[in-house]
Design a protein around this nucleic acid. Structure first.
Lengths: 215, 215, 215, 215
DNA sequence: AATGAATGAGGCTTCATTCAT
DNA sequence: GATGAATGAAGCCTCATTCAT
C-alpha cells in the first residue's frame, strides 16, 4: 500500500466536511452518478482541495468507505453481543444496537451496504481499494461473537456451529433488509418505532432455535 | 405505465438482438459503465435504432429488466415447487431448478439481481420504471407456492404461514448468494457441481423445520 | 506500431481541415499552448470529432507532424538537387526550391523545424511518436544528393566527402535561418524578394569551395 | 524595460536559490512543463515568495534568462578569443572555452539555447521580455572579436569581414550542436573527452580558410 | 425507415495565483 | 514579510443523443 498523496497537510474540519459530503452523495447516488463538483459544493470547499487531499475521485471513494468502516467499527460495542444468555436475547440486543447505528450513521451504512456491489462494476482503479478495505475490515467475525452463547446451549447432533452461524447471518440479513425498507418510508423514525421489526427478529430466532414443526 | 415511444414499428429480430446485447452488458458492467455504442455493435444494429426503438438508455434498461422478468417468468415451472410433500424436498427441487435457470440465463439473473440496487442510484428517470417492473413482477408470490406444502404439515402454534414464508425466503436468498459466489469462481459449472450447495439448502430447511436445539 | 483508432470512417475534408488547423496552431503556438477547442473551432468541426479521429491531442500532434513530412516529401523534387554541375548551382537551386516550399507550406515547415525540440520537453506519450516520424523520414540523405556533384570535383587531399557534407549542412542551416527571419518580417513575400538570401548562399558556398584566404 | 514588481525588498540568498532552481527546471523540462511548486520546493522557499519576488511565472522565466546571460557573460574571458594569430587557433581556444562553460553551466546554456524558441510559442506576456533580454545580450558581437585576427590575414578580394563572421558563426553553431549531442549521451564527460569535436572544429575552419577545392 | 458520423454538454483533473494567518 | 493551503479558471476527454443522408 502506497500513501497516495505523500504529505499534504489537511485541515481536519475540511477533510470531515468533504468525507461527509462524499459519504452522503455516494450513499444516495452511487459512485458514477456522484459529481466531484457537488461534493465540493456541499462540503463548502473548492473543487481543487478534494484532489489535493485525496488525489482523485477513486481514492476519495475508498477513503469514504474506510471511514464508514472506522466509524461503525469505532462505536461498535461488542459487549452488546457477547453477554447474552440465549440467542433471542442476543438478536434483540444486536438488532436494537444495529438499528441505532443505522439511525445515527445512515450514510455510512448505505455506503458499506453496496460498497461491494459497486466494486464489481467500478473502474478497476477503485476495485482493489474497495476490496482492501473490506479485507481489512473482516477481522471481528460474527461467528466468534456467537460462539460463547452457543457454548451454553445443547444443540441437536446434526447441527454444528457453522450452520448456526449461517442461520443467524440469514436472520441478520433479513432484519437488515426490513430495517432498510422501513427507514426508507420513515426517514426520521426513532428506535421505539422499530418494535415490530424487533418482534420479527425474535420470531425468526425462535424458529432457528425450535423449528416450525410441532414435535 | 407510459408507452415510451408512441407508435414506432419495430423489427422484432432487431429488438431481440438489442435486448440480448443490452442484457449481457448491463449484467456484466452495470448501467453507467455500459455504453450504447457497444450495445449497438454487439447487437449488429445501428446506434440510431436503439434510440428510435427505446427512446433513451434509461428506457432501454427498463425494457431489459422487463424482459429479464418475462423470460424467467415464462420458463418458470411452478409444478416443480408445488408437488412436494415436505419442505426439504421442495427446497431441493426449487434450488436445482433455480440453479438451472441461472446457468441458462445468467445475464437475466444478473440484471434482476442488482436492478433494484441500481434503481436507487439511477437517474430518476429510470427509477420509476424499474420500480414499476418489480411491482408488476411480484405477482406470483412464493407464499402461495409454499402454502399447499404447509397445509400438509403440523406447525407449532406460535408459527403462522407468513413466518414460514419469510424463513424460506431467507434460505432462498442464502442459497442464491452461495450460488452467485460459486458461479463467479466456476463460470462454466454444470448442475452436478452444485451438490454441496444443495446439501446446504437441505440443512438450512432442516433447521427451519426442527430448530437447532436438542429437545 | 498499433493503429490507434481502429477503423473510424473519416470525412477527408474534415480530416484535412483539422490537420490544417492543428498544423497552423502547433506551428504558431507549440504543443502545450495549443488548445483542442481552438483547433476544432478553426477547423469548423466539433470538439468531439478530433478525438474520434485522432484519439487524443498527442496522437493528433504526431499525425500533424507526419503530414508535414509527407507533404514536403511528396512535393520534393530531388532532380533539382541532382543535376547540378557545381555546388554553387546546386545551392542556388536548392535554396530557391526550399524557399518556395516554405512560402507554400509555412506551417508544415514550422512544425517540422521545432518538432524535435518539442519532443524533448513533450509528455512522453508524444515523444516516441515524434521520434518515430523523424526516424521514418530520414530516408533520403543530403549526403547522397551531394555525392554526384562532388564526384565531378577535385578536392584537396585532406578533405573527404563527410566534411563537405557537414559544411553544406551548415550553409543550408544558415540559409534556413535567414529565410525564417526574413519571412517573419515579410510574411507575404514572394520568391523574387529572396534574391539577397540567394546571393548569400552563393557567397557561403564560394567560401566552402575556395576559402577566404588569398592564395 | 519595465521593473516587474516595483519595490519589493528581496532576500538575495532566496532570489539566488529560486533562480537556480528555476534555471535547472526550465532547462530540463521547458517552460510549460515546469511547475512553480517544484521550483519552490527545490529552492527551499515558499511558493508565495516566488510571486512576491517575480510577479508571475513568465517574469520569473525572463529573470532566469537574464541571469543565464549575465552568468555566462560575467565569466566570459574574451582574451581567449582575442589573442590568437589565426582562425584555427581561435576556434580551438573558443571551442574549448565554450565547452568548459557548458560543462560548468549546463542549465544556463540549456535555457539560453531554447529561450528564443520558447519566445515564439510563449504567452505573449513573456515574449517581449525574452526578446528584450536577447536584444540586450547581443551587445558584444562575435564580429568585433574576430576582427583583430582578420586584420592579420590577407583575404580574397570578394570576401569581406561580414562574410567571415557569418561563416564562423556557422562553424560555432555546428560545434555547439555536436557538443549538445555528445553531452546528451555523455552527461558527465570532461573536457578531455571532447578532443574529437575540437578536431572537427579545426577541419571546419580549415575549409573556411582554404576551401575544399584543390587549387 | 435506418444509419452512424457528428455534436457538445458535462465530467475529472491540473496548476498558476491569491490571501488569511 | 513570509508562508503554503486554498482557489477556480481552464484544459482534455467521454459518450448519450441527434439528424443529414
Amino acid at each position: 500500500m502506497v500513501d497516495e498523496t505523500p504529505t499534504v497537510p489537511k485541515d481536519p474540519a475540511k477533510v470531515q466536511r468533504i468525507l461527509a459530503s462524499a459519504m452522503h452523495n455516494f450513499a444516495v447516488h452511487g459512485y458514477r452518478t456522484t459529481k466531484t463538483d457537488v461534493i465540493a459544493q456541499e462540503a463548502d470547499v473548492s473543487k481543487g482541495i478534494i484532489f489535493r487531499y485525496f488525489g482523485n475521485k477513486a481514492h476519495l471513494f475508498v477513503a469514504v468507505l474506510q471511514q464508514a468502516f472506522d466509524k461503525i467499527e469505532g462505536v461498535a460495542d461488542y459487549s452488546v453481543w457477547h453477554n447474552s444468555t440465549d440467542l433471542v436475547e442476543m438478536i434483540v440486543r444486536a438488532t436494537k444496537y444495529k438499528i441505532e447505528l443505522q439511525l445515527q450513521y445512515p450514510d455510512e451504512f448505505g455506503v458499506l451496504m453496496d460498497g461491494y456491489v459497486i466494486a464489481e462494476k467500478a473502474p478497476k482503479e477503485v476495485k482493489a481499494g474497495i476490496k482492501a478495505v473490506y479485507a481489512r475490515a473482516t477481522n471481528v467475525s460474527l461467528q466468534e461473537l456467537i460462539t460463547p452463547v452457543l457454548d451454553r446451549l445443547e444443540l441437536r447432533p446434526e447441527v454444528d456451529y457453522d450452520l448456526v452461524y449461517t442461520m443467524m447471518t440469514m436472520v441478520m440479513n433479513q432484519i437488515q433488509e426490513e430495517t432498510k425498507v422501513f427507514m426508507k418510508t420513515h426517514p426520521h423514525a426513532e428506535l421505539t418505532e422499530f418494535t415490530e421489526i424487533i418482534e420479527h427478529a425474535k420470531r425468526y430466532v425462535g424458529v432457528v432455535e425450535k423449528g416450525i414443526l410441532r414435535v
